[in-house]
Design a protein around this nucleic acid. Structure first.
Lengths: 347, 347
DNA sequence: TTGAAAGCGTTACCAC
DNA sequence: GTGGTAACGCTTTCAA
């Protein structure tokens, strides 16, 4: 015996009856078609709306218009707290704000890479378009992209670099290769001869690009530079901290490059633990500077990311695509910039 | 002249025609009412679904069932990157994951406190229930709560402590008063005599509670302790850093308590800048420890927050409320715990 | 086990 | 300026 006080929601029809006009008139008022309604009638209707506390039913509107005024964002990540990542939280904030301004709704869902295809956002049709962040091995990501192509719906994929043959897909990324190069050139200028690259085990295109850019710049520096890589089991501070400490107990490189700021911060702490002077003995850098870089002592040298703006831009591209039926731009790359801190340069 | 390639979406009817069965049979298969459908028929239908790439239309389903299987979360914040806050990002992640497991959708929207009432999530009816995080002056928050009561819809409010008379409203918070007390007792044990509390100008109930708990514990410590407060213009690291530095250039307290970890980290950095030894000369603490506390050197003493679990719990309470028509619990308070770091205790 | 009909709340279209 | 009609895609109900 369950108590169900299903008070029926107020409908447009209720308002129309209460105001003594037709449903269509109410609809015209609600939708802001004010030139269709006499001022006096409009006042009556608005009074009734306020009195009855009427709110238009979005499902009904969506069904009627065949559009939901809603975008979904699906984030593939092994970390359950998927919004914790500063890149992702900024991206989603920017997207959400842009959509809000245009009265669009944002559905947010995180999913582990293995369950990607069965995510509600993909298996049910509830959004007009999608944003996606992928991770995992290249093979898997490729499969996910193919799945997205088959969805037959506008999709923006972040931080991916293989543009599929489908004008439903648009790529949006930051120039991580260039970011890696910036770090590489900066360190080469400091005459680094041995370098440790610290990255998470989980595959992200961004991380791969950063490493490629780094190696490219170092390879063209004119000196022989020895690069080693360690993969940390997760991106959790403690895991990274421990992994770097283990490495440093055996060998002290001239520089440590973290694939993200969290990894850089953990490396910094490992150096502090082992009394390795930064920047005097070893230089340390991060990537994707938002907040973390300034929490640390010394400040972390990092590459600044335009994540928030990328989110807004995604909203813009998607809404334009919905209006015009075509993406104005299929592969946008945002510039990044080097932020030099005391972790690589005595102040 | 706009190109509109509005390829009509595949409907249940299309599938039924293609499979040579009635729409109802397809519906039964889609919804998993397998005992109503012969195995052979079901196979035919599933084949057609896969072949046509059919995805059920959520708006139509919602309209028919008068429920959207969707929850909204509205976050009142002056910071545009509202998901950046580690408490909020964990909370939303936990909520999102719980809802995903039950095939519910989560709509996320940030809004500035002044525009609160006009947020799409509130002014249009698209969700079955809401979660809300409030901020701003007490008067304004009270008005927002009243607005939520009038919505006549299940709502969970986080970090609020005045339970209104409405069984549509449920409060979920962490024990920030106790958290403040824990910090206070810890510092009193260290025989602190002068203390600086650093808080953002923007009003959050959590911050107020933390300060009250802190003052309560210090007031009962048996010693005379002088407490001063500074309000930082924002929660941005640089603003806080500067504000604390200004204060420290005039006076050196025995302890600095940050209202959040970011404020604590900024205070730590200000101490480093002015060569004030931590913890030897001044103790420093934060609040809501997630990641930041361990980035700093020394590690920040902080109060750990169960934000992720609070998000999951909110989902649980809300879905139970939708099923049973009544909140099993109207005011849940989550315990917190003290995490002692090197910023208050020589290791 | 399958099918036909009605209706969820809204809006485009056209008549008044 | 205003209102009637039909339809959006789905599921509950009842009949076959």
């Amino acid at each position: 015996m369950v108590t169900k006080e299903r008070e029926k929601r107020v409908t447009l029809r209720d308002v129309s009856r209460s105001a003594g006009v037709s449903p269509m008139t109410v609809s015209n008022v609600v939708r802001g078609d004010h030139h269709l309604v006499k001022l006096e009638t409009r006042a009556k209707v608005e009074e009734a709306i306020a009195r009855l506390n009427y709110r238009p039913n979005l499902s009904a509107r969506s069904l009627r218009l065949s559009r939901a005024s809603s975008i979904g964002i699906l984030i593939s990540d092994t970390n359950p707290a998927f919004l914790t990542d500063p890149f992702i939280s900024r991206l989603v904030s920017g997207l959400s704000n842009y959509l809000s301004e245009l009265d669009f709704t944002l559905d947010v869902q995180g999913v582990s890479p293995e369950r990607f295809e069965s995510a509600t956002i993909l298996s049910k049709a509830g959004n007009d378009a999608l944003c996606v962040i992928l991770c995992g091995p290249k093979r898997l990501r490729r499969r996910h992209v193919e799945h997205l192509v088959r969805m037959d719906q506008p999709v923006i994929i972040f931080q991916e670099n293989n543009l599929p043959h489908s004008n439903n897909i648009c790529l949006l990324s930051q120039d991580d290769f260039e970011g890696g190069s910036l770090i590489g050139r900066h360190l080469a200028d400091k005459e680094v001869r041995s370098l440790l690259f610290v990255r998470p085990k989980l595959d992200w295109v961004a991380v791969e690009q950063r490493e490629r850019g780094l190696r490219f710049a170092l390879g063209h520096s004119g000196s022989e530079i020895n690069i080693e890589t360690i993969m940390t089991p997760s991106e959790d501070f403690e895991d990274v901290h421990q992994a770097v400490k283990d490495y440093l107990s055996r060998s002290t490189p001239d520089a440590i490059v973290g694939a993200t700021d969290v990894l850089g911060a953990a490396a910094l702490k490992a150096c502090a633990d082992l009394k390795i002077a930064v920047p005097e003995t070893t230089l340390v850098t991060g990537f994707n500077g938002f907040d973390v870089w300034c929490y640390t002592t010394p400040n972390l040298t990092t590459v600044m990311s335009p994540a928030y703006e990328m989110g807004r831009q995604a909203g813009q591209l998607l809404l334009a695509r919905l209006k015009d039926g075509v993406f104005s731009e299929r592969n946008t790359v945002f510039p990044v910039s080097l932020q030099i801190g005391a972790s690589t340069e005595a102040q």
